[in-house]
Write a protein that binds this DNA or RNA. Structure first.
Length: 360
DNA sequence: TCTGGGGTCCTAGGACCC
DNA sequence: TCTGGGGTCCTAGGACCC
């Protein structure tokens, strides 16, 4: 039995621990400090959600929908500490824990005789030790557990059996299926798919024409509750990046170059702390028109030298030759390797493949 | 009405190699 | 002289997730 734990309006709930006076009021945690800044809602309290305020909504719109909302600037260091505290509690309930973000995790409760009781105990302990609530879903795989945790929120606990899937989920929007985002939802709508049930039963070829064969296979399996993924307790990072959105759109190359220097410095400092280095440097730019461009270059060696990364970043900015001012710029490194780790073997390093024709 | 930041995975074409 | 084909790496873009 797999459990999926999802902390309830996590960032807001953590803020309320130090601002109890705000409890019961519409609260928004955002990366911007005013309704005029170019920010979005990171988390909205349930009181704010009543007004149609939700994650990723622009602050300008959020403010229009709920002018009385209290805007709290985000404090990621605090949320990371709180996250660590709750993950430590989860770890007391299972040896197999997959952290799936600051506010969610999967646990393997197969070793437990009464998983639902264990889950209830875990929710209790989280509330007792941290003052935070969470919603837990139980299922025979990650997908069912994840869907289950969404069925009763906040402070929920629900079990979703594969055989109950049609009864409890078929009528819900296909959007609850992981992998169905705004674009896929539109394409699905084009072939008459609105609900999970529609997706589960649509003729495969029709679905494949709409979203591609590969995607179609995965989506239809999920709509039927099937998911073969294992928990992944340890995940090696594959890339690391920093980006920043400006208060206003910028064309000044010298000024942009200075931002690249700063971002490269931050990425390299962080990689250094994690004893990692990368081979591919990627420059990301978002134009005033919102189009996103990337330019990348792969080095023959791994690096976390801020000067080298910044120099490459500036070169890539020249190559980019943007025709519009930029609203965002970012620098990332991928192809990461931990210090002392041998590079992945190339074909030449392996033993020669020998065909023993005589043996046949 | 205006759209963050940090990630993952997938696709597709071209280069290159055997 | 119309045609190899498979595998891997690199680059760019897109969708999605939290």
């Amino acid at each position: 039995m797999i459990a999926h734990v999802d902390m309830d309006s996590f960032f807001v709930s953590v803020e309320l621990l130090r601002r109890p006076d705000l409890r019961g009021r519409p609260v928004i945690v955002a990366n911007g400090t005013s309704a005029r800044s170019r920010g979005v809602v990171m988390t909205a309290s349930y009181e704010a959600r009543e007004f149609g305020v939700h994650s990723a909504l622009s602050l300008a719109v959020a403010h229009r929908r709920c002018p009385q909302a209290i805007l709290v600037p985000s404090d990621m260091r605090l949320y990371r500490r709180a996250s660590k505290a709750v993950m430590d509690i989860f770890a007391e309930f299972s040896d197999t824990l997959e952290v799936a973000g600051l506010d969610e995790a999967y646990l393997d409760l197969s070793g437990s005789i009464a998983p639902k009781t264990r889950a209830r105990e875990m929710k209790h302990l989280v509330r007792q030790r941290t003052g935070l609530t969470c919603s837990v879903g139980l299922g025979s795989n990650k997908l069912l557990a994840k869907i289950a945790s969404d069925l009763e929120k906040p402070d929920g606990l629900s079990v979703l059996d594969e055989t109950e899937m049609p009864d409890r989920v078929d009528g819900l929007s296909a959007r609850i299926i992981p992998g169905v985002g705004p674009k896929t939802e539109q394409r699905l709508s084009g072939v008459g798919v609105q609900t999970v049930g529609d997706l589960a039963r649509i003729e495969f070829e029709l679905l494949a024409d709409a979203v591609g064969r590969n995607h179609a296979r995965g989506l239809q399996a999920r709509a039927n509750g099937q998911d073969g993924r294992q928990l992944e307790p340890v995940r090696e990072p594959k890339s690391e990046s920093r980006e920043t959105t400006f208060d206003r759109d910028i064309s000044d190359l010298e000024w942009l170059g200075a931002r690249i220097d700063e971002l490269a410095g931050e990425v390299c400092a962080s990689l250094s702390r994690g004893c990692r280095a990368g081979r591919t440097v990627t420059l990301k730019a978002k134009l005033a028109s919102f189009q996103t461009l990337t330019r990348s270059r792969t080095l023959p060696h791994h690096t976390r030298d801020p000067d080298e990364v910044a120099r490459l970043g500036r070169e890539l900015l020249d190559v980019l030759d943007a025709a519009e001012p930029l609203r965002l710029i970012g620098i990332g490194l991928s192809g990461l390797r931990r210090d002392g780790e041998s590079p992945p073997p190339t074909v030449d390093d392996g033993p020669a493949l020998r065909l023993d024709l005589d043996a046949a």
